[in-house]
Computed example of a mutant assay.
Amino acid sequence: MDNILKMSFAALFSAVVLAACGGNDETTPDSNANTENDAAENTETNEEAPSEEESDSMEEMDHSRMDHSSSGEVPEELADAQNPTYPVGSEAVMSANHMRGMDGAVAAIEGAYDTTVYMVTYTPAAGEEKVEDHKWVIHEEIENAGEQPYEQGDEVILEADHMEGMDGAAAVIDAAEDTTVYMVSYTDMETGEEVENHKWVTEDELSPVE
């Protein structure tokens, strides 16, 4: 009789142990699934939210491809300014901020011209990312430009070469202004680089040297 009780107890104990093991096996897949889902959600979140450094880099992309210096050649039809505020050979302080290293630099005036200057948004001819609110393109740097200046919203083709992919690119006029525009040489305030015959700076972006 004692043996029968012992065997029954052993059988009951084994059944309890097996049931416990079976319960652990059933919960494991759910736990793994939750872990995998959490990892996927974290990956999606990281992909959707660029870091602050990446955001700053995208904002600076506009003029990263800009040719600061130029040969100094200008369109044949571009008219010299008759009485510029800053004549060729004089100096002026720049307050332009459309390029790094420009604001506060002393510029030597290499050329002064009366024209219409435009701020434009364009898609580079090579299909690169759109460039918005680029400063500046002058009337004579637009394909088949007539005598009448363009207005905000007009669509044009650029012939300027200030930046990669600009020549031949389709653009939209964001703003237009009749003014004196200057070609300048200066020392980059951030890099110390000598910039020669930079195009363009408007008269509003210059002030007398004190």
Rank of each mutant, 00 (worst) to 15 (best):
residue 100 R to G: 15
residue 165 G to I: 12
residue 144 N to S: 05
residue 87 P to E: 04
residue 135 K to A: 13
residue 153 G to W: 12
residue 107 A to P: 00
residue 113 Y to T: 02
residue 112 A to P: 03
residue 132 E to R: 11
residue 121 T to E: 12
residue 94 M to R: 02
residue 111 G to I: 01
residue 161 D to Q: 03
residue 94 M to D: 00
residue 113 Y to I: 03
residue 88 V to C: 00
residue 82 Q to E: 15
residue 121 T to W: 12
residue 81 A to I: 11
residue 125 A to M: 15
residue 162 H to D: 13
residue 155 E to M: 07
residue 81 A to F: 06
residue 82 Q to W: 02
residue 128 E to K: 08
residue 106 V to F: 00
residue 103 D to W: 00
residue 163 M to N: 02
residue 137 V to P: 06
residue 84 P to Y: 05
residue 96 A to K: 08
residue 159 E to Q: 09
residue 144 N to D: 13
residue 128 E to H: 06
residue 160 A to P: 04
residue 151 E to L: 15
residue 127 G to V: 07
residue 132 E to Y: 14
residue 113 Y to C: 05
residue 106 V to W: 00
residue 160 A to K: 00
residue 118 Y to P: 07
residue 113 Y to F: 15
residue 115 T to V: 04
residue 93 V to G: 01
residue 108 A to Q: 11
residue 122 Y to F: 15
residue 84 P to N: 12
residue 161 D to W: 05
residue 111 G to A: 02
residue 165 G to K: 09
residue 86 Y to I: 00
residue 103 D to R: 03
residue 85 T to R: 03
residue 110 E to Y: 04
residue 82 Q to M: 13
residue 115 T to W: 01
residue 83 N to C: 07
residue 117 V to R: 01
residue 124 P to R: 13
residue 158 L to K: 02
residue 138 I to F: 09
residue 132 E to G: 05
residue 93 V to N: 02
residue 118 Y to Q: 10
residue 130 K to I: 15
residue 132 E to C: 06
residue 118 Y to G: 11
residue 82 Q to A: 14
residue 146 G to E: 14
residue 162 H to K: 12
residue 133 D to P: 05
residue 119 M to H: 00
residue 143 E to A: 14
residue 89 G to M: 09
residue 102 M to T: 15
residue 145 A to I: 09
residue 152 Q to M: 15
residue 113 Y to V: 02
residue 99 M to I: 14
residue 140 E to I: 11
residue 131 V to K: 11
residue 118 Y to H: 08
residue 92 A to N: 00
residue 87 P to F: 02
residue 95 S to V: 06
residue 101 G to K: 06
residue 108 A to S: 10
residue 105 A to V: 04
residue 96 A to T: 12
residue 133 D to T: 11
residue 140 E to R: 09
residue 121 T to M: 10
residue 88 V to W: 02
residue 108 A to V: 11
residue 125 A to I: 13
residue 94 M to A: 03
residue 141 E to V: 10
residue 107 A to F: 00
residue 149 P to I: 14
residue 157 I to P: 02
residue 130 K to H: 05
residue 125 A to W: 06
residue 89 G to K: 07
residue 140 E to F: 10
